[in-house]
Amino acid sequence: MARTRTPVVSGWFTENAADGGGFRLLGTRCSACTAVFFPREDAYCRNPRCPGGGELAEVPLSPRGRVWSYTDGRYRPPAPYVSDPAEPWEPYTLLAVELEAEGMVVLGQGAPGVEVADLAVGTEVEVVGGVLGEDAETTWVTWQFKPVGGAG
């Protein structure tokens, strides 16, 4: 049976950015003070010095950034992380990536095949679409990072 491809969280990324740039994380930007938010903030601006009166508009985040830090998960995380307890645990890599234009650090899993040994603080990485997991009806789609032109 074909599974439905569904974002693990709706509205946090697009697989077809409006600028033709492919996969991008989506945040929001306050029109009054230029503050950018990811995960998206749709109800209010959190900058305490925002003059107010602005609107929060969806904005694609930078497609590339540099590794701020990285680690891996050697043990199965607890629910609500979805994994099959009958299968051996496969560690994944977790990256914190600094986006220069937004001046923010964003967490994401490494793409399949990206190992701790492939990374260093400062490595340039790009955001790509990937699969977080599958159940009977759904393929859960998420964002992942991988080195630009490198491993993974």
Binding site: R29, C30, C33, T34, A35, V36, F37, F38, P39, R46, N47, P48, R49, C50, W68, A96, A101, E102, G103, M104, V105, V106, L107
Partner: peptide
């Protein structure tokens, strides 16, 4: 604000575009 060091349980820091 803006908090620039990633902290539990956040998925991202604040951005520095506005401050």
């Amino acid at each position: 604000y803006p908090r620039t060091v990633l902290d539990l349980p956040d998925i991202a820091t604040d951005s520095t575009t506005a401050a």
